[in-house]
Amino acid sequence: MSTLVIKDLHVAIDGKEILKGVNLTINTNEVHAIMGPNGTGKSTLASAIMGHPKYEVTSGSIELDGEDVLEMEVDERAKAGLFLAMQYPSEINGVTNADFLRSAINARREEGDEISLMKFIRELDKTMAFLEMDEDMAQRYLNEGFSGGEKKRNEILQLMMIKPKIAVLDEIDSGLDIDALKVVSKGINEMRGEGFGCLMITHYQRLLNYITPDKVHVMMQGKVVKSGGAELAQRLEAEGYDWIKQELGIEEEAEQDV
């Protein structure tokens, strides 16, 4: 079992504090969902976990199985078992999807123990078929000219090929039509199990109709303000966030996109 422990995490961008003390523990074999209005720091949390250079952790800690994640470079975090499905995946011209994936898989292996080309292709073909992706996506340049839905599917393809211990999915559902959402959810559900934990960040309860979370957290003003089970998401869907604000005495503040 692996565990990601986030303690009292404070994160700033350009000197402005966005996360103001986040506490969260995610184990493998668990799916967590973080919900909350726009601009409350959900994506900042995702970026801070992965180590985006723009996000400065001012205090607090992130540990994966007792190892200090904040000490690690971005690639070391990935190799330790973390994965972030990005909200806006980069497009990289001239690098094929397949070459990129093989580099990512081989980065986790010792020199001389690289995945064989045949085995890689077999696995790639199988996974792409599972995600109902066109075969030519393997030879297309990484995310270049991909539609929004194709990019999200491609993030899940990477997730399934790389098989991390703990994945953070940053708005994997945004901009997806219902068919694509079903496919993406199918991929995530396929990953569920002993060796895999997941933190899904979303605006919408709809995603949770396809992936039933074990735990739901609500984030506001840079903190997790409420946690519960799947029923919490349903109540949010039905009633919105106002009742939480009232319950906790949170003042409205201007929305900002972070």
Binding site: D75, M86, S90, I92, V95, A104, R108, I162
Partner: peptide
């Protein structure tokens, strides 16, 4: 993006340049 998949900085740069 590339490093978040476990690719080292050096290898990521190499891929981007070749691309």
């Amino acid at each position: 993006y590339l490093m978040s998949r476990g690719i080292s900085k050096q290898e990521a740069e190499r891929l981007i340049i070749h691309g």
